[in-house]
């Protein structure tokens, strides 16, 4: 009897506690136990550590053709695996393992850079449309519709091809511009929902200025879907950047290794030396998968409908 009472009390306390836990805290509680999220997080963690430390991890200089004497183009000979070079060399006789490791840096820079620029652009347009409404909203959203109606990869190609001198920056820009409409539409939608919410009405009833209503009351409450989307966009950005480099629209300087470019370079020798393509391809897939796993589980965890 006494026992039953106390367990009931605990239950009530438990409910009260969970009602007082913030969205972020309860999301983290569920994420910690999700194997999918952990897998993604481990992949991303390793990827970031490797790319930051790659200059020291790489056994050799990735741009020095140290095995060039073993390359015989006419007989299609490429340096095989050998002591000191566990994955052998590439077409220019450079250490393949070092190039793979250092290549992760470009992927990280381009992926993060493109996502951040895309996010900034999307935040700007989305806030503009969601806060001002009316004709501004219509104009911005039609622009977004036009951009979304083009296949994203095709749009990225066209933008990248517009630049006379391709470089790392043009790749970032091309990929970023493609992501802007995704963010803009998402933010605008959640800003609209906020605009008709009770607390915005209450703030208006207190005479709070328009700017403060937008930036203090609407925007912070609209951000969580956008943040989740950005982890998913990271995956797309990495794949799209790799695709651009693969097609030769990336950085033309092949001394700096990049996975997409490494893939493109070995197209002619693919049937005899498939490993040269397989390694960078697997790297791209694993990293993109890591971001996707993390983003999807994050979205599920932050969805208020899935709470408890």
């Amino acid at each position: 009897m006494v026992l039953g009472l106390s367990s009931k009390k605990e239950k009530i306390d438990g409910v009260a506690e969970s009602a007082g836990v913030s969205l972020a805290a309860s999301a983290w509680k569920r994420l910690r136990r999700s194997p999918v999220f952990l897998t993604g997080a481990v992949i991303i963690g390793l990827f970031i550590v490797v790319s930051v430390l790659s200059p020291w991890l790489a056994p050799h200089n990735p741009s020095e053709p140290m095995l060039i004497d073993q390359v015989v183009k006419a007989r299609n000979e490429i340096p095989p695996a050998q002591p000191g070079h566990p994955l052998g060399g590439d077409l220019q006789g450079r250490d393949f393992l070092s190039r793979l490791l250092v290549g992760s840096q470009q992927t990280l820079i381009v992926g993060v850079g493109a996502t951040l620029i895309g996010l900034a652009g999307g935040l700007f347009l989305g806030t503009l449309a969601g806060a001002l409404g009316g004709w501004v909203d219509s104009v911005v959203m039609r622009l977004v519709d036009v951009m979304l109606s083009l296949p994203s990869l095709l749009l990225a190609f066209s933008i990248a091809a517009m630049f006379a001198k391709p470089s790392q920056f043009t790749v970032i820009l091309a990929v970023a511009i493609v992501q802007i409409p995704v963010f803009a539409r998402l933010l605008r939608g959640s800003m609209l929902a906020q605009r008709h919410s009770d607390h915005v009405l209450a703030a208006t009833a207190l005479g709070v200025k328009k700017g403060a209503i937008v930036f203090r009351h609407m925007l912070p409450n609209s951000l969580s879907p956008v943040i989740v989307q950005s982890t998913l966009v990271l995956a797309t950005a990495i794949i799209e950047a790799a695709a651009l480099s693969f097609l030769g629209l990336g950085n033309p300087d092949d001394r700096i290794p990049e996975w997409g470019q490494m893939l493109g370079d070995v197209q002619n020798v693919f049937d005899t030396h498939p490993h040269l393509a397989a390694y960078p391809a697997i790297c791209i897939i694993i990293v993109a998968l890591g971001f996707t796993l993390m983003g999807e589980t994050l979205r599920e965890a932050l969805d208020p409908k899935n709470r408890r």
């Binding site: 607390h199 209450a202 009833a205 207190l206 005479g207 009351h217």
Partner: peptide
Amino acid sequence: RGRDLGMVFQDPLSSLNPVV
């Protein structure tokens, strides 16, 4: 509004900004 005219709404939870 807020200075001369004040208003109290029905649902106190949704009338407060959750992130401030």
